[in-house]
Simulated assay, not measured.
Amino acid sequence: MAKRITVCAGIDTGKRKLDVAIDGNCEQLQVENTAEGYKVLLEWLRRHKVKRIGIEASGGYEQPVVVELRRKRFVVVVFQPAQVRAYAKFHLQRAKNDKIDAALIAACTAAVKKIHPAPDPRLQLFAEHLTLIEQIGEDVTLYKNRLETCRDPRIQKVWKEEIARLAKRERGELKALVAAIREHRDLAQRLDLIYSVGGAGLPTAVAILVRMPEIGQLSREQVAALAGLAPYDDDSGEQVGIRHIDGGRKRLRRALYTAALPASFRWNPQLIALYKRLRAAGKEHKRCLIACARKLLIFVNSVVARGTPWQDEPPPSAIIAPTG
Rank of each mutant, 00 (worst) to 15 (best):
I22D: 00
P269E: 13
G216V: 14
C108H: 15
R254V: 10
P213S: 04
I242L: 08
K160R: 12
N145E: 15
R122Y: 04
V210L: 08
R294I: 03
G60P: 09
F74R: 05
G14N: 10
A35H: 15
G199V: 06
A207F: 02
L92R: 00
P121W: 12
K295H: 13
Q83M: 13
V158W: 05
F79G: 05
R70G: 02
Q239T: 01
V31W: 07
G282V: 14
A318C: 09
A102V: 00
L177V: 13
V140Y: 09
A230T: 03
R169G: 13
R249M: 05
E170M: 14
G37S: 09
W44P: 10
K39C: 12
N145Q: 15
F74H: 05
T131K: 13
A176C: 11
R249A: 03
I115A: 00
G172D: 15
Y257G: 02
P64R: 08
P213H: 04
A180D: 14
R73T: 02
I133D: 05
L252V: 08
L29N: 13
V20M: 10
V197Y: 06
E62T: 07
D233G: 12
R165G: 15
Y143A: 12
A280N: 08
I155W: 00
E138L: 12
P309E: 08
G216E: 08
K276W: 03
Y232D: 02
E68C: 08
P262F: 13
Q239D: 00
L142N: 13
P314E: 10
R251H: 14
V7Q: 02
I320E: 14
K250P: 02
G137A: 09
E62R: 12
Q63S: 01
K15R: 11
K99E: 00
P119R: 07
V206R: 04
D120R: 10
C8H: 01
G247P: 06
E134T: 07
Q30H: 01
D19P: 00
R306I: 03
G198R: 09
A111T: 03
P316W: 08
K15A: 12
K175Y: 14
E221M: 07
A188P: 07
K250S: 15
K295C: 07
S196C: 10
R211W: 11
F74P: 02
L130D: 06
L42A: 03
D234H: 15
R94F: 09
K160H: 03
I194R: 09
D235R: 06
L209P: 04
L218K: 11
Q93H: 05
P262Y: 13
V158S: 10
V31D: 05
V206L: 05
Q63C: 01
L187M: 07
R294G: 09
L226I: 06
Q80L: 13
Q93N: 04
L274E: 10
A88N: 04
V20I: 14
N145A: 12
C26M: 07
A102L: 00
N145K: 14
P315M: 02
Y232T: 04
D246W: 05
Q28P: 01
R254W: 12
E183F: 00
E27T: 11
L202W: 06
A318D: 12
